[in-house]
Simulated assay, not measured.
Amino acid sequence: MTTDPSRPRFRRPLLMLSAGLLLAWAAHAGWFERQNSAGATHVTLATWNLEWLMSPGTQAELQARCTRQQPASDERALPCTPGRTPPPTRHEQDFQALSRTAQALRDHWAPDVVALQEVDGPEAARLVFTSGWRLDCFSRRAHPQKTGFAIREGLPYQCNPELVALDVDGTSRAGTDITLYPGTSHAIRLLNVHLKSGCFDGKLDRSFAPCQRLRQQVPVVEAWIDHRVKEGVAFAVLGDFNRHLDRDARFDAGEDEAAPLNVFAAWSDDQPKGAILHRATTDQAYVPCDAQDRHSRYIDDILISDRLRQRFGNARFGRQAYAPADAGRQLSDHCPLVWSLQR
């Protein structure tokens, strides 16, 4: 691949903007937020899939015209496939419980950024992240399952073009891309992904449709990783991989980069030199989100580049489980996963 679709699309046009428009765009990008020298000494990253998070009004509107199959990325609709669990219906007490979890995450971990999946844009995210956050850099698909970011207020950042190539079939989710501390020596590039579900284990060369789609997505992420390595940028890929990477990492990806057999080894292959990733969940026991958690292995993860790992010598892994008092609420089938990196 000779071009990188995730490069900032404003690089040349910025020179042509009027001073007023330039200032407005830069403010939106977070460049004029208060500088925080702590970014040079530590960074805390988190990821959280909020399971079809949308406002009650939006859900009522979309449910009225739901489709029997999963809507395409350009469709503003919800699925109502017979025999499959519909998107959850939430009430005010449910949103309050999710908001309490976000506040506990902030109190206990103070994350700089939370990568969000299955959120219907910043307005929906504000139902959970009520204060102290910038909610930005969301994908632009019409489908209510979007990726985006909650960024700690005061932290300088820049939204980069979304990785639309991850939508390999018109129904998959694009990746979203952000730079923390842009233009500084401790800049960090983050790619937020929510990959195809259904192919949690085993080789990707099976005829099973989810594995075929995931196999198409892996080279897209690999191209993004390789470009960052060549640029010499510290980076992380985080989100919902819908894959048991602890098992996957034990197997080779095969010789064909365009058709890999596994996920993690395709990305962490030291080609180009330095393309080595470190997983937050390596050797970590599974921490359930609550008593009803149906998972037994992580599918959410945070992968950091070797350059970023060398910058920070200490790492602390954690999970923000739901409070026992919120048992029975309609929360999410995922909870926040956190990796705090320090010098």
Rank of each mutant, 00 (worst) to 15 (best):
R316M: 03
V263W: 07
P219Y: 14
A104W: 07
G254P: 13
L191T: 00
L204H: 14
W267M: 02
R9W: 05
A97P: 11
T179W: 05
D290E: 11
L50G: 06
H278S: 13
D136H: 12
R250N: 08
E123G: 15
K203C: 03
G202Q: 01
F208W: 15
L14S: 05
S305I: 07
A223H: 05
A234L: 03
A40N: 00
G20D: 09
R106W: 00
P182T: 03
A275P: 05
S73T: 04
E153G: 12
I225V: 04
P111H: 11
K203R: 01
L155S: 12
W31F: 05
P13V: 08
V113H: 01
A142I: 13
V119R: 12
C159A: 10
Y157E: 09
A259H: 11
A72P: 06
A323W: 11
G154S: 09
D333R: 06
H108M: 10
I178R: 06
F264D: 09
L331P: 04
L204T: 14
W339P: 07
I188Q: 00
A150F: 15
F264Y: 06
E257Y: 09
K196V: 01
T179S: 11
Q284F: 09
D201E: 14
D333E: 00
L23G: 09
V43L: 00
V168H: 13
D240N: 13
R68F: 00
F241S: 06
Q217Y: 15
A174M: 07
L166M: 15
H186E: 03
T85E: 02
G313A: 10
T282A: 13
R141I: 11
D256Y: 07
A325I: 10
D240P: 12
W339S: 01
A40T: 02
N160P: 10
G198N: 04
I188E: 07
D201Y: 15
N262C: 05
R343A: 05
R307I: 08
A38E: 05
T81H: 09
W267L: 04
A24P: 08
Q271T: 04
R189A: 04
A315H: 11
T130G: 13
A174I: 08
